[in-house]
């Protein structure tokens, strides 16, 4: 029981923060506790959340995708370009736009998977390059006048109070949880993130898995870009600029180690709730977007700093105290799935 609590300590910590944020928000604004506010809270950043789900895989796998916001802009601009040029039905244009995201992910993924280039550099190039590609397509124009059904998808609820994007997100995160925690592929994502060489020697096709994940990341960004365009009603070249900060923050706050190999979907889901509620609370208390961004940035740093300091203090006490045999208190990077992974791996190596 203690072990289990220890393993989920980051998620417990996040839950505690969430409860605090919840009560602070209630005291800050009478409008916080309303069904409409909660729906709005999700609706205002639902596209980011879709990308967050796949980004969790990318980072656990030991990589990073800085290009997601630019790919969102790129696929939206592909849609805008096709719509503007005419010639293809809008439905086809939507599919092509999403596939453009897939292609972007595939391109970057092949550099990472087959050439072994660091994803930080490849996706940095993607961050600059795909934004550039988006600009080439739409230049300085704002393109709108989409078919009515497209605007409706973005703005109106599909089932009950939930929009298509929200349903996609919910289905996505549940599926992601199952894939990551219950399937062989999910296990291999952790193993690769922990140690790609060990994964290779245990017979995991590292290149293929990395390619699949980077492609999925591009596809998710493509879908998110199109959905964002549907919600906004117009597409400009700077669509979704800077979203990568928010997206990566949510994943890392969720307890996913930037070095790969650990983290859970539950943690990421809690982190999403925390970030959304903090932003919402700050908004209701009349703090502008800019201040919200600063708070998120501080949260990102604190989410790693605090556990590190606590861990180090605990380790110091443990060395002095009688309980010397217990494992050293690793930072939360060691948490999540790491402890049980080692024994599982060893038989496979021989």
């Amino acid at each position: 029981m203690r072990d289990r609590l220890f393993r989920w300590r980051w998620e417990l910590f996040l839950s505690a923060i969430l409860v605090v944020v919840f009560f602070v928000n209630i005291s800050l604004s009478p409008f916080y506790l309303g069904e409409q506010n909660f729906v709005n809270m999700f609706q205002l950043s639902i596209e980011k959340l879709i990308v967050v789900v796949v980004m969790t895989f990318v980072i656990i796998n030991g990589e990073i995708d800085l290009s997601v916001a630019s790919v969102m802009g790129f696929s939206a601009c592909v849609l805008a370009g096709l719509h503007d040029a005419g010639g293809v039905p809008f439905e086809v244009a939507v599919v092509i736009a999403i596939l453009a995201g897939t292609a972007a992910g595939l391109l970057q993924g092949s550099f990472v998977a087959f050439m072994g280039l660091p994803s930080l550099v490849v996706t940095l190039a993607g961050l600059i390059g795909f934004r550039g590609a988006a600009r080439i397509i739409v230049e300085d124009n704002a393109i709108g006048d989409f078919p009515e059904w497209f605007d409706r998808i973005g703005q109106d609820p599909l089932v009950g109070r939930f929009s298509l994007a929200f349903i996609l997100f919910l289905v996505g995160i549940v599926l992601a949880g199952i894939i990551l925690h219950k399937t062989a592929f999910g296990r291999s994502v952790y193993v690769i993130g922990n140690n790609a060489n060990v994964a290779r020697y245990s017979g995991i096709n590292v290149a293929r898995d990395k390619l699949i994940i980077m492609t999925a990341s591009g596809t998710a960004a493509g879908i998110a870009g199109v959905l964002f365009a549907a919600r906004l009603g117009t597409i400009r070249g700077d669509l979704a600029t800077g979203f990568e900060l928010d997206i990566i923050t949510m994943v890392l706050l969720g307890g996913v180690s930037i070095f790969g190999g650990s983290g859970t979907i539950v943690g990421v889901a809690l982190a999403i709730l925390i970030v959304l509620n903090i932003r919402n609370g700050l908004g209701l208390a009349n703090y502008d977007q800019n201040t919200q961004l600063g708070v998120i940035g501080a949260l990102l740093i604190l989410s790693v700093l605090v556990p590190n300091l606590v861990g180090r203090l605990a380790a110091r006490r443990r060395v002095v105290g009688p309980d010397q045999g217990s494992p050293p208190a690793a930072s939360r990077h060691g948490g999540g799935d790491t402890p049980q992974q080692e024994p599982e791996l060893r038989p496979a190596q021989h």
């Binding site: 900060l245 961004l293 600063g294 998120i296 940035g297 990102l300 740093i301 790693v304």
Partner: peptide, 13 residues
């Protein structure tokens, strides 16, 4: 990467 992504936002804010 975490620190400077954070301070990128904080300094600007």
């Amino acid at each position: 990467i975490i620190v400077t992504l954070g301070t990128l936002a904080i300094y600007r804010t």
